[in-house]
Each structure stands twice: as structure tokens, then as C-alpha cells.
Computed example of a mutant assay.
Amino acid sequence: MSLQLSTRALTRLCVLPAATTALALSLVSPASAHVGATVSDASAGAYTIATFSVPHGCDGSPTTRIEIQVPESVLAVTATRNPFYEVETTIEQLEEPVTDGHGNEVTERTASVVYTADTPLPDGQRDTFELSFQVPDAAGETLAWPTIQTCQKGETAWTQVPAEGQDADELESPAPSFEILPASGGDGHGDETAAEPAESEAEAEAVPAEPTDATGATEAEASAPTDDGSSALGWAGLVAGLLGLAAGGLALARTRTTS
């Protein structure tokens, strides 16, 4: 009994510090979380929606303004409405015109999108902001979106970009970013359906036509017995069998008479 009590007491002593540590980590994690971005599709050339998440305020102060700076390789973005904010888009002129994905000449681009809160976002609550755009055709590159978080007291500039070979987790205030993936290789609409007839035609062309005789029938058809021939052979065999049976009966009768 004393051994069981000692084991239970030791278990409780071990569990208590672990639970206390886990609770402390859960309280610290939200305060150390960064403003981040996730995208619905990171493929080069894809049309995607980036969701920017603001998990907390500035050292406990409510958030009043979020400014998202658009990378230079992105020409235009469309901001999703947020009922608690006023949205303003900043446009800048390009030094030289460029051609967009639709072949149109573009002379200006979206430089930034600013969300100004009607009611400050409390420090203990989070909010998200969405932008839709076309991913640049630059697979392998990291697309950074420097973001300025302004609060009632203070400001946090999430603008740090890691140097080559540096881990973004080492930065104190990293800019939201994501890596551009290789293009998916098509819009994915009707590719399989369109391919089926072509494959069927190719298979049909790949099968050689069978040679035919003078009547136009194939060799297989000419060599195969017809149903009429099979029936005639069957009747002939039946007649031969009956004749043989009759001959055997006649021979048996003669043998008995002679006896």
C-alpha cells in the first residue's frame, strides 16, 4: 500500500510541472505570433486569394490600421470588403509600360491596400484581410508582402525579409510571404474529356485492317465455319449412326436364325 501511494505521489509531482509549463506556453504563444499570409493557390500564373491574419495588437494595444504593401511583381489586387474597416487602395505609375497576362498594356499598378478600422480591433481578438490577384510567373521565388500594423499606442512593422540562406523564424518581425510553386500546367477544365476522343481515334488508327478475299470477307470470316455447314454435318452424322445401328440389328437377326 505504501508503495502504491508513493508511486501516485511521484506521478502527481511530475505531471504538475508539465501542466504548468504547457499552460505558460499557451499563454505566451498568441503574443509571439506573427502577421502571416496563406494563399488558395501558390502556382505560378494562377489566380489566387491571399488571406492576411492579424492575431494580436501592439503590446496589448488595439489595432486601428493595417497597410499591406503589394510586391512590385504583382500589378493589381482586388481587396475583399471588411465590415469593420474602410478600404483604400494606393495606385502608382510605372516607369515603363508592361504587358499583363491578357496581353493588355499596363501603365500603373496597385502599390498598397490600407484597412482603417471603424472600431479598433481588441488585442485579444484576431481578424483577416483578403486580396485576390494573379501569381507572378516566377516559380521558386518568395513573394513578400510587407505589412504595417498601427495601434492606438505604437506600431509594428512586419517588413523584415530574410537574407539568402536565412531562416524567416530568426526574424523578429518578418513580412508575410509565400513561395511561388511551379505552374499546374493548364486550367483543368475539360482536359480529360477533350483527350478521350483523340485517344480513341489514335487507337483506331493503330489497329491494322484485316486482309479480305475477292468477296470482301476477311480471312477470319472465310475460314470460320458457317452455321449452315455445321447443321449439315450434324444431320449427316446422325443418318450414318442410324444406318450403322440398322446394319448391326440385321446382322444380329441373321445370326440367331442360323443358330
Rank of each mutant, 00 (worst) to 15 (best):
S223T: 11
G249Y: 13
S2M: 09
P122N: 05
E88D: 13
G154N: 07
A209L: 15
E199T: 15
D137L: 06
P122I: 10
P162M: 04
A163T: 12
V135I: 15
A214G: 08
F84A: 12
T150M: 06
S177V: 11
W235Q: 05
T258M: 06
P197M: 03
G60Q: 01
T107N: 05
A111K: 13
T89Q: 09
Q93N: 11
A44C: 03
E196P: 01
L131D: 05
Q69M: 02
D123E: 06
T78H: 04
A246S: 14
T78P: 00
E205D: 12
L27K: 11
T110P: 13
T89H: 00
F129W: 09
E96W: 06
S230L: 14
G185M: 10
D228H: 06
L25K: 00
L10G: 01
T257S: 09
E86V: 14
P162S: 03
A240H: 01
F133G: 01
Y85W: 04
A214H: 03
E219N: 09
D213A: 10
T193F: 11
T116C: 02
G249S: 11
C151H: 02
R109N: 03
T107H: 09
E67Y: 00
I68K: 05
Q134L: 12
T212G: 05
L242C: 14
A79L: 08
V87D: 05
E179Q: 14
D118C: 01
G154I: 14
E155W: 02
L131T: 11
G60N: 02
L233M: 09
V15D: 01
G241H: 00
S43Y: 09
V135R: 02
P182E: 00
P162T: 09
L171P: 08
D137C: 02
T193Y: 03
L250D: 00
G124V: 13
S112V: 10
G216Q: 06
T99N: 00
Y47Q: 04
R126W: 09
G124T: 15
T128C: 09
P174G: 04
L250K: 02
V74G: 03
A76M: 06
W145K: 00
A50H: 06
A138N: 06
Q166G: 00
S223D: 10
E221S: 07
A24T: 14
L243W: 07
A22E: 05
S43M: 05
S184H: 14
A31G: 01
G244Q: 01
A50F: 07
A195L: 13
Y85D: 10
E141W: 12
S177P: 08
D191K: 07
P120I: 07
R256I: 15
A209C: 08
T64Q: 09
D213E: 07
A19M: 12
L181D: 04
L121E: 04
V39M: 04
P176W: 05
G124L: 12
V161F: 05
T159L: 03
L242V: 15
D118P: 00
A232L: 13
V77H: 00
S177D: 03
I180G: 07
A204C: 05
T128A: 10
H56P: 00
